[in-house]
Amino acid sequence: MSQIHVTTSINGDATEFLCEAEDTLLDVLRDRLGMTGSKEGCGTGDCGACSVTVDGRLVCSCLMLGAEAEGREVTTIEGMATGDQLHPLQQKFIEMAALQCGICTPGILVAAKSLLEKNPDPTEEEVRYWLAGNLCRCTGYDKIIRAVMETAADLRRAS
């Protein structure tokens, strides 16, 4: 059982790793690269806590093999802030109490950022459907949806 050598980019950093063929990208991030910001809530693509982007496309890292990352550009929650500057979504989530326990928060932030890049002026319904694959059991989603909408409004004003 020989390991696969993968060369990829994670949050803009050239990265190499060895993995087993059956390792998911989430396994690689968490167990081989020590990037535990992406969470495993289900392992079956039903909860979204492991959300990352690959070549700009939002995916569940539990539903992708680590080997598939060869030559791709992966971004994770760890790449969301710039130095000590939080992304506006991160800041807004804290300000608006859009998290309680915080386990779903990394996945929701990655997903929400992906939404706003695609659609800077989403309706409430669009935000709710975009985030339907990100389960949150604490908040009832209310404050999350509001925080995403407000950040979108802030970003529109700023641009």
């Binding site: 693509g45 569940c60 997903a111 985030l131 339907a132 990100n134």
Partner: peptide, 9 residues
């Protein structure tokens, strides 16, 4: 089929 994330694949 599935979530936005699943749609990505």
């Amino acid at each position: 089929i599935g979530s936005t994330q699943v749609q990505g694949r």
